[in-house]
Write a protein that binds this DNA or RNA. Structure first.
Length: 493
DNA sequence: AGCACA
């Protein structure tokens, strides 16, 4: 029972193939360690960021002589060992091996395990992954899959050096936004090493690739692969059309309710379902149409435009990967208009609402929609100098063809081309005159005395219902963009 | 600047 336990000091230590390094810069990386030590031999293991200050480390050489050569070298060198300009003190460790101190994911290998956080599998295509990781060397193979951890990819490089380079550069970083669909707000990469050394890719498919074998057959059962988004030459995922639109609402100063959205989006066809939700602090909504072409028309017309005057509640639209929403038939955040009872319920409940929120009665909408539409045209357009960011496609002001006369645009003939006048008459809300040279959609909102459950453009014949102000089409969205004298029965005050 | 982890 001697009271040994005294620390061993530099000149009394027995050599070990494990070296203890001190005074390292804070959170010194393994690569910096390897850089420093590898001239002396093969490094078989490391342990970084040891100690309260995370400025110590251990390095294990394959052979004792290699460790001795490093200690000897710096013992007699006029240049001290340095990392990032800091002198590093090196001595033999009092242990002879680095115990299995690493989680498996920290043991370098040529295959990376990449967890892509905050996205769903369809958001990041395998081609985008390939593009991003190819920056560090030839990517042999990629396999993607979804686990509890989220969307993951195994990425095989030639060697662990290349893999490490990719990991060091990309770990805890994000795939550039421009490579991602618009609705993806964050795309955080968490990268570790896989224990795999060679992935077994059986097919080229939407979820796996073998770039070393381009003649590998395409998975015949990967029907999904065909549905997978096409990818342009830049690797950016092209939008895949869908009957369901994803709307992100920017600058949401005013409440955007299911009813407001229903009104706005019903201008283009039957809205089947709506769901509103929050994602990353932003309000988003899914709007389901019966078919892709209707959704496409809505998207085309509404993208970048504002529900309310003044740049409020700006819409950004993309196609959802959903095709059929599973929503509560009636809630404050969702609506299923395909359920008849729900429509009734909707009509009842909404008509029972205590008036229109003040925000909808945006005073600015008055001048814009009450006779100023023509005279103020210059002023309005003057708000957008150069016209580069013209809030509304000019063709919308002069032509109706975009939404009406193009055959096949509305397979559901929600807009019978000839029905525009009657429709416009019925749908024209107070003060909505046809040539509205503005970007907003607000008459949809400024006159909310509509029947939310019954889209105007779905009503048979579009006949006017006396006493009931029907609203279906925002004035600047309306197909009948051209002025048709005499067609307006409503000139709301 | 002075020895980890289980």
């Amino acid at each position: 029972m001697s009271t040994s336990g005294q620390p061993q000091f530099r000149y009394t230590q027995t050599p070990s193939k494990v070296l203890h390094l001190r005074n390292l810069p804070w959170e010194c990386t393994e690569e910096e360690l390897i850089e420093l030590c590898k001239p002396f031999g093969k490094i078989v293991n490391t342990k970084c960021n040891v100690g309260a200050n995370r400025n110590q480390a251990f390095v294990e050489f394959a052979d004792l002589n290699q460790a001795i050569s490093m200690v000897s070298y710096y013992a007699s060198s006029s240049e001290p060992a340095q990392v990032r300009g800091k002198t590093v003190y090196i001595q033999y460790s009092n242990r002879h091996e680095i115990v299995n101190n690493k989680s498996p994911g920290d043991i370098p290998g040529n295959v990376l395990l990449v967890t892509i956080e905050g996205v769903e599998a369809g958001d990041v295509s395998i081609d985008v992954i390939h593009l991003v990781f190819s920056a560090f060397g030839f990517v042999h193979k990629i396999a993607t899959f979804e686990k509890a951890a989220g969307f993951q990819a195994l990425i095989q490089f030639s060697d662990s050096e290349t893999a490490s380079a990719a990991r060091n550069a990309l770990n805890e970083r994000s795939i550039p936004r421009y490579l991602l669909p618009e609705h993806v707000n964050s795309c955080h990469l968490r990268i570790s090493y896989s224990a795999h050394t060679d992935l077994n890719i059986k097919f080229q498919s939407h979820r796996s690739r073998d770039y070393t074998n381009p003649y590998l057959p395409v998975n015949p059962t990967a029907i999904e692969g065909i549905v997978q988004p096409a990818v342009g030459p830049d690797g950016k995922k092209k939008e895949l059309e869908s009957n369901v639109l994803l709307a992100s609402i920017e600058n949401m100063q005013y409440a955007v309710t299911v009813d407001v959205l229903h009104t706005v989006f019903s201008a283009f066809g039957t809205v089947q379902k709506i769901a509103i939700f929050e994602k990353n602090g932003q309000t988003q909504a899914l709007v389901q149409y019966p078919d892709v072409s209707t959704a496409a028309a809505a998207r085309e017309a509404l993208e970048g435009h504002c529900i309310y005057d003044g740049g409020y509640c700006k819409l950004h639209l993309s196609y959802s990967r959903h095709t059929d929403l599973n929503v509560k038939a009636y809630s404050d955040k969702s609506r299923d208009y395909t359920i008849p009872d729900a429509s009734l319920l909707t009509a009842q409940q909404v008509s029972g609402l205590p008036g229109v929120p003040g925000a909808w009665q945006n005073p600015q909408a008055g001048p814009l929609y009450h006779g100023n539409n023509f005279t103020s045209g210059g002023a309005v357009s003057g708000q957008y100098p150069g016209g580069q960011a013209a809030p509304w496609d000019p063709t919308m002001q002069s032509g109706r063809q975009q939404y009406v006369s193009v055959p096949g645009t509305y397979p559901g003939q929600n807009f019978a081309a000839s029905s525009v006048p009657g429709y416009a008459t019925a749908a024209g809300p107070a003060g909505s005159s046809p040539l509205t040279p503005t970007s907003q959609i607000p008459s949809a909102v400024t006159s909310m005395g509509f029947s939310p459950g019954v889209p105007a453009n779905v009503r048979p014949g579009g006949a006017s219902s006396p006493g009931q102000l029907q609203l279906g089409v925002p004035p600047n969205v309306r197909p009948g963009g051209a002025s048709r004298p005499g067609q307006h029965t409503y000139y709301g005050q």
